[in-house]
């Protein structure tokens, strides 16, 4: 069984999420592990996590999902790949189902664990917006997966990947990008090992400095609850929850968030949850591993200080 992984690059290197996708592919492959990667992505890391061969293509400008799908489908056909793996991202989540249509494949999104081969090809994914999980059997000969962060342990395979140049035919897109606003240098919510989120309990956008300071200390991304993004205290792309971004970090710290069911749905697959809230009855404490009842304005600076002394 050959496996194909689509690599996204950032600062001339494969994104960390793409390396997780490689590790996932290497763990299930019984044949070749092939990566299809833009030529600006350094290939050393790909071999390290188990890629046998890299198909390098040259890109000019940003790819649309239709173009990614076309590149990946052509690579999958050329390599007779039976499993195609994407790391979850906004673009990949759209490209994966398109690849599914091109290849006549079964598609599963938000996969959180390794497949179970004892019952065919069965993957586990979240449903009901984080309130439950389901195991889904993928029936078609080809499978396309988009995997969530932490779906696999990173195991080094120490291979050296063979590089092949790859020239898929890619049609131009009718979509024109007029303007891009993106904060660079920040850790992305979906990539972060640690997320610090603030809620209405922080009383106003002017109090986010201490959240950012805590996040910086922990090398964490910052998030917020829905009311906070609705009131424009924070940008929409920081909204964590059922109708926002769903995160699965190692550590999620919620400050001044009461824990509405819709917010919990977005964080339920976090490994460890810390809740800091002045209301001892906040429902979030029931979904947390560690809790502090008290005034965030008092606790957060002290917590940050204590962390600085330890880390």
């Amino acid at each position: 069984m050959n496996v194909l992984i689509y690599i996204e690059s950032e600062n001339n290197a494969p994104k960390k999420s793409s390396l997780e996708a490689v590790a996932y592919g290497a763990a299930i492959a019984k044949g070749q592990v092939v990566a299809v990667a833009p030529s600006d992505a350094d290939t050393t890391e790909l071999g390290k996590y188990g890629v046998d061969k890299v198909l390098q293509f040259t890109v000019s400008g940003k790819l649309e999902a239709t173009q990614v799908a076309s590149i990946v489908a052509q690579a999958a056909q050329a390599q007779s790949a039976e499993v195609v793996i994407f790391a979850k991202s906004i673009l990949n989540d759209l490209a994966a189902p398109m690849v599914g249509v091109h290849l006549g494949a079964s598609v599963a999104s938000n996969v959180i664990e390794m497949p179970d081969f004892s019952k065919g090809f069965v993957v586990k994914r979240g449903v009901f917006s984080g309130k439950a999980y389901t195991e889904v059997a993928l029936n078609n000969a080809i499978k396309v997966l988009s995997i969530k962060k932490n779906a696999v342990a990173m195991t080094e395979k120490g291979k050296t990947a063979v590089i092949e140049s790859f020239s898929p035919s890619v049609a131009a897109s009718t979509i024109t990008i007029k303007e891009t606003t993106q904060k660079t240098g920040d850790i992305l919510l979906t990539d972060a090992d640690i997320v610090v989120s603030g809620g209405r309990g922080l009383k106003g956008p002017e109090h986010w400095g201490m959240i950012e300071e805590l996040a910086k200390t922990l090398n964490a991304a910052t998030g917020c609850s829905k009311p906070v993004s609705d009131m424009d205290w924070r940008p929409h792309h920081e909204h964590v929850g059922q109708t926002g971004i769903k995160v699965s970090p190692n550590l999620y710290i919620a400050v001044g968030i009461s824990g509405a069911i819709q917010h919990l749905a977005g964080v339920s697959s976090s490994k460890t949850i810390v809740v800091i809230n002045k209301d001892a009855d906040a429902p979030f404490f029931k979904a947390a591993d560690y809790g502090i009842v008290g005034d965030a304005f008092d606790i957060i600076p002290k917590f940050t200080e204590a962390l600085k002394n330890t880390l």
Binding site: E135, V136, D298
Partner: peptide
């Protein structure tokens, strides 16, 4: 039929929230 749900699983509730005194954030660290 491309995909089929084989089974469901309800995530285990987090067993017990360990409460830490607000005056002792060092313990949380």
């Amino acid at each position: 039929i491309s995909t089929q749900v084989a089974s469901y699983e309800v995530p285990a509730a987090r067993s017990n929230c360990k409460m830490i005194d607000a005056a002792n954030v060092g313990q949380l660290v």
